[in-house]
Simulated assay, not measured.
Amino acid sequence: MRFMVIVKADQDSEAGVLPTQELLAEMGKYNEELVKAGVMLAGEGLQASSKGARVKFHGGKRTSVIDGPFSETKELVAGFWLWQVRSKEEAIEWLKRAPFGDGAEVEIRQVFEAEDFGAEFTPELREQEERLRAEVARRQ
């Protein structure tokens, strides 16, 4: 099972405050454990929303582009991991070991797999998806 581990933003991350050298070292060690265990597939921190934009759609057409920053800090994402684990419980156990301080909030969400879509995900669509994933892998 794959899980997206979503690190929520806070006032510091939205203000562009960078982590300390100590926290970077702790996170590096934690990420190394995830990689050695075969859990971590990807992970990145994100710039503050002031450097981003939102694109809204209606009726299949783009209706607006809104430049950041965005006001609801607690709803914003500061970073993420993509993990491969056996269960949500295993993801939670890994997350409990993360070097976050007081007030940090992290969300865990299971990623859809092809079989989750049932018959609507036709053999042709599956083939297209596999082809796209292979192309992405070649480019990395």
Rank of each mutant, 00 (worst) to 15 (best):
P19K: 06
E26Y: 01
R138F: 08
E107P: 00
E26H: 11
V106T: 11
I66R: 09
E44M: 09
D10I: 02
E120D: 13
L46Y: 04
E120G: 13
G103T: 02
E130L: 15
G101L: 02
M4G: 10
G60F: 08
A42D: 15
T122E: 10
S13R: 05
K74M: 10
L46M: 13
G45S: 09
K51S: 13
E72H: 03
E72T: 09
A119T: 12
E129I: 08
A48H: 02
V77E: 01
L82W: 01
I108P: 03
P123A: 07
S71W: 00
D102I: 08
R126G: 11
G16R: 05
E105I: 08
I108H: 02
E90F: 03
E75D: 13
A78K: 01
F80V: 03
W81C: 06
L34Y: 02
G16P: 02
L24V: 13
V65H: 07
A137S: 09
V136P: 01
Q21D: 15
K56W: 10
L125I: 13
G43R: 01
T20E: 04
G28L: 04
D67M: 11
E90H: 01
V35P: 00
K61E: 15
R109F: 07
Q47F: 14
A53Q: 12
L125P: 00
E127G: 11
L76T: 06
A25G: 09
G38S: 05
V7R: 08
M4P: 03
F100D: 08
V55S: 08
K29C: 04
G52H: 01
M27L: 14
E130S: 13
P69C: 02
D12W: 00
Q110N: 01
M4T: 13
L24S: 13
S71M: 10
D102M: 10
V106Y: 07
A78Y: 02
G79A: 09
G103C: 06
E22Q: 11
S71Y: 05
I6S: 05
D67Q: 13
V55M: 15
E129M: 12
G38R: 00
